[in-house]
């Protein structure tokens, strides 16, 4: 599996760290079902998955990667909102 960083190009998997499923963060800070959902519960898809990866030993940008979890095929990657700044 290789990932493409929009800033650095296609790179070896060793340079990246998986940072979790790409989910919308709840508004507000009070604990409730929305936070439980966000932190714990997962669709855990067998197929297309949207997830964050950090280019940790490269430029440090956080990427939004679309990937097929059945085949490890990478379908797309872009800078996560604010991830390159």
């Amino acid at each position: 599996m290789r990932l493409t960083c929009p800033l650095c190009g296609e790179r070896d998997l060793r340079e990246f760290t998986y940072r979790g499923a790409a989910l919308a963060r709840p508004e507000g800070e009070a604990w409730g079902d929305d936070w439980h959902d966000y932190i714990h519960l997962r669709d855990n898809p067998a197929g297309e998955s949207r997830e964050y990866w950090a280019h940790s030993t490269g430029c440090a940008a956080v990427l939004l990667v679309t990937r097929d979890t059945r085949t490890h095929e990478v379908l797309g990657s872009a800078l996560a909102k604010g991830g390159g700044a």
């Binding site: 599996m1 760290t17 998986y18 067998a46 998955s49 997830e51 979890t69 059945r70 490890h72």
Partner: peptide, 10 residues
Amino acid sequence: MYPSYAQRGN
């Protein structure tokens, strides 16, 4: 350390 159903790793 990434989600997978491939039953093989990298």
